[in-house]
């Protein structure tokens, strides 16, 4: 009756089944659970957001555009569009679809919920930057107006989300960002990064991998149709224009403090002294507070105390104490070498 081969095969079979059922994202169990949720509300809200963002860029969409942009069966979308027209959230003019005033309001509330949740994820949780958008994309459909208001007050009514997008207020006020795409910045002009677009995913992840931060000063040194080279915090970065177009910068006057002396703490060598200029905006929440509390504040002197046999973390001497920081932290502290 018992045979080790049988027992082993049975075990492997069960393991495979469990894996197929419960593997993250694609597991059957999650798929079944998802299909059980009534998703017309979600489709409607996604269409509203799509229309809102397009109208912000002065693009008018038709029904065809909507069906191709959203990852939903066409019948679902058409049904939702009819439903929306019935509740006069949208106005249909021939092929074109526009938001009505109440639709606009609704869309703004969704955007507010989405961006507030991203801010929350950035400040109060440990989720990775690349996950924020996807989590918020699901969560925005679950938050009620009371939830968002409560969230806003807990976060101190923030103006911008972690990508630099403005968060609409309760009354629908939206701060506007005045800036140009990094790809449009001329050679030798100074700018400060104020916004990094979190879509499409592939480009966003590339920007994250380059270690480019919101709030950093940039100076373009070379530019042609293939690539843009710019200096930022003591390092030279090369980006394809299509990627640079996803980064928005605000123009800075030329006589603004020259950034040539600015570097990242991670670039400090042994036996060099430096003064801290500040902590990058990308250092958030608990981690930022901790660094400040340890004395990594503007004007503090710092030097490398100890190198690590495995490369990182390195220990830095600050305020007479030796504090070890990992490279991803040290790269978000800005210094001026003495």
């Amino acid at each position: 009756m018992y045979s080790p081969v049988w027992a082993l095969s049975l075990f492997i079979g069960i393991s495979i089944l469990l894996f197929l059922l419960f593997r993250p994202e694609k597991g059957w169990f999650w798929a079944i659970r998802k299909s059980n949720i009534n998703n017309q509300k979600i489709v409607i809200e996604d269409i509203l957001k799509l229309l809102y963002h397009s109208e912000n860029q002065d693009k008018i969409l038709n029904i065809n555009d909507i069906t191709t942009s959203l990852n939903e069966p066409e019948s679902n979308i058409l049904e939702s569009v009819n439903e929306m027209a019935r509740h006069s959230l949208i106005l249909i003019e021939g092929e074109n679809v526009r938001l009505s005033e109440s639709g606009s309001d609704y869309a703004l509330r969704m955007v507010r919920a989405h961006r507030l949740w991203e801010k929350f994820l950035a400040e109060k949780t440990g989720f990775a930057e690349s996950d924020w958008h996807h989590i918020a994309e699901k969560k925005e459909h679950e938050l009620t107006d009371q939830d968002t208001d409560y969230l806003a007050s807990v976060l101190g009514n923030p103006q911008f989300d972690p990508h630099g997008d403005p968060i609409p207020t309760k009354t629908g006020k939206v701060a506007d960002i005045k800036g140009i795409a990094l790809s449009d910045l001329d050679v030798n002009h100074l700018g400060r990064i104020i916004h990094i677009k979190d879509k499409p995913d592939i480009i966003y992840k590339q920007i994250l991998a380059e270690n480019i931060h919101i709030g950093s000063q940039v100076r373009v040194v070379e530019k042609d149709s293939n690539r843009i080279v710019f200096h930022c915090e003591g390092e030279a970065f090369k980006l394809a224009p299509i990627i640079a177009a996803n980064i928005t910068v605000s123009l800075l006057k030329k006589e603004y403090i020259s950034e040539d002396n600015v570097a990242r703490l991670s670039m400090l060598n042994e036996n060099e002294y430096a003064t801290i200029i500040g902590i990058s905006k990308e250092m958030r929440g608990e981690s930022r507070r901790r660094l400040l509390d340890l004395g990594f504040v503007k004007g503090a002197n710092v030097k490398v105390d100890l190198l690590n046999p495995l490369g990182e973390p390195k220990a830095f001497l600050i305020k007479g104490t030796s504090i070890a920081l990992r490279n991803n932290q040290a790269s978000k502290i800005l210094i001026k070498k003495d």
Partner: peptide, 16 residues
Amino acid sequence: KTVLKGEVSTFNLELP
């Protein structure tokens, strides 16, 4: 990578 992904994570190490 899974269940604890969302917990807050900071790092610092003092060398007394």
